[in-house]
Design a protein around this nucleic acid. Structure first.
Length: 271
DNA sequence: ACGGATGTTCGCGC
DNA sequence: CGCGCGAACATCCG
């Protein structure tokens, strides 16, 4: 689920779901989701609150309510926010539950518990260390090609690993970087500081395109997903090692970079 | 049935 | 200090 586009989609959903409604009850059983923070504060402080704003920075969601109550949410690998009717069955791995004054209940669902929830003063959400550590956000700040080039010049890591560094650009993960590098025709194992200005320009454009398409997809999936059931892979090359390149037909290769499987076309993306 | 999966963090060794 | 690697977290899906 969650890289920048899916998290952005979640932010938009949360704005709609909470808008103008009072949270009647907040509940969350003990779980790793609250590691390092107070689960009881979640239950106590969110009751009676109404939403003021939702912001996304990279893969983080910052949710601000009245009375200076703020919720930091990171979806990890499998976290998602879902809305259910009050009498509908709860999601299988609902870890936190926010019952609204109408008949809706908003759940944070996360089977693998890699995500995180934490209560902070709303006024401090944007100043939290984990948020300050993020590089520019492609949608909020845009990607400055000069700035990206400067960041890439500073490291000897592969361009793929550098792009997944949240301090370089916030929000890109394994899927978005794999797809963007394919679009930009840049081999993922290229040493970051060897990229030319022209290649960085292509990369900036490819990242924007990839995010735009994945974000559009996130909206479509929500409608079709439920019945479709069949797992179709909407990506150009991600998880398609061994299949033909959609551009030239060459067999796509799969390697591991930064511990993550990485697919590329050996003909379109030369070292 | 087994391997791998969208993320992050930590420890270890070079 | 920079970097790569493996492990850990816990569950699902093909």
């Amino acid at each position: 689920m969650p890289e920048l586009p899916e998290v952005e989609h979640a932010a938009r959903s949360l704005r709609r779901w909470f808008s103008g409604r009072i949270i009647e009850r907040a509940a969350a059983p003990e779980s790793r989701i609250f590691r390092g923070s107070d689960r009881l504060a979640f239950q106590r402080k969110l009751r009676g609150r109404t939403l003021e704003w939702v912001e996304r920075r990279g893969k983080y969601l910052l949710i601000a309510f009245d009375d200076d109550v703020g919720l930091l949410s990171h979806l990890g690998m499998t976290g998602k926010w879902v809305k259910r009717a009050r009498d509908a069955p709860a999601p299988l791995h609902g870890r936190a539950r926010l019952a609204l004054e109408d008949d809706d209940v908003v759940f944070y669902d996360d089977p693998r518990l890699f995500g995180r929830l934490a209560i902070h003063p709303a006024s401090e959400l944007l100043e939290l260390p984990e948020i300050r550590a993020l590089g520019p956000d492609p949608l909020v700040d845009g990607i400055d090609r000069g700035q990206l080039h400067a960041s890439l010049r500073k490291t000897s890591r592969s361009v793929k690993v550098a792009l997944m560094d949240q301090g370089v650009i916030a929000g890109l993960g394994n899927i978005q970087t794999t797809e963007a590098l394919f679009r930009a025709k840049i081999h993922p194992a290229r040493v970051a500081h060897t990229l030319s200005s022209k290649e960085v320009d292509a990369l900036v454009e490819a990242i924007a395109k990839t995010i735009e398409i994945t974000l559009a997809e996130a909206g479509i999936e929500e409608i079709t997903y439920i019945e479709e059931r069949g797992s179709h892979n909407p990506f150009l090359v991600y998880r398609r090692g061994g299949e033909p390149c959609p551009r030239c037909g060459t067999t796509l290769e799969s390697i591991v970079l930064g511990g993550r499987s990485t697919v590329f076309c050996p003909k379109c993306q030369k070292l």
